[in-house]
Design a protein around this nucleic acid. Sequence first.
DNA 1: GTAGGATGCTAAC
DNA 2: TTAGCCTCCTACG
Length: 275
Amino acid sequence: MPEGHTIHRLAADYRERFGGRPVRVSSPQGKFADSAALLDGAVLARTEAHGKHLFLGFPGEEWVHIHLGLFGKVNFGGPVASAAGPMPPPTDTVRLRLATADAYVDLRGPTTCALITDAEKQAIHDRLGPDPLRADDDPAGAWRRISKSRTTIAALLMDQKIVAGVGNVYRAEVLFRHGIDPYRAGRDLSPGEWTAIWDDLGALMREGVRLNRIDTVRPEHTPEAMGRPPRVDDHGGEVYVYRRAHLPCHICGTEIRTADLAARNLFWCPTCQQR
DNA sequence: GTAGGATGCTAAC
DNA sequence: TTAGCCTCCTACG
């Protein structure tokens, strides 16, 4: 479930459970074993997220750079009472385990898990766009690029160089919430539309961090409010269009459409999203 | 049991 | 534009 909100939540969870303490570091699966040995016993000094990139900071300006990609998963365990027996053995797919005497966290299937320097970390920040979840990030740079681009807004929102942290769910949902046709060119958006999208992404993603899931349906459009039977989307939260192909739009009843765009599934309501 | 898909991204053509 | 990477879960026999 890795969009930006997941990563920011992970940064907070790693910090809360392991920050400021020495941790055992291992890589049962092996691909991170050499670096794990170097870090083993070090204090997890800080954690940080930018878009879909997670950074675990250790003394000496060293960082573990993690990117979950499509499949990556993090699983927190413990606290485990020592009397109750040993910590569960990591399975052979665990790329990185941090552990204290009574708690652990396992990382599986990431695209990236690498030990990097502060300069390398800075280079990653430099190639990422502003992140709606980073309080100091300025959307002006993103608007400069969007307002000049002939590329579709659907593609631009997924480009991490332009906006960091938006994935396929938030992309589909925020365009629906603002009634914007996903195929509209970036340069055909108004400054007001962009500001509204940016602000809404911030609000939606902060809520995503808090609930640890993506919920985008306004209270007045919930099944209860619309007088329809309650419904649970199979991916957790409540959404308007994501993965709802051929189902009726919650607002107008039109069949939700789907298409391939740059190798990703796009979903939208052709009636509600025309402007 | 097996195939296929998934909230991502990059390198190579 | 495509293949490839990494893992888990569901649907389908």
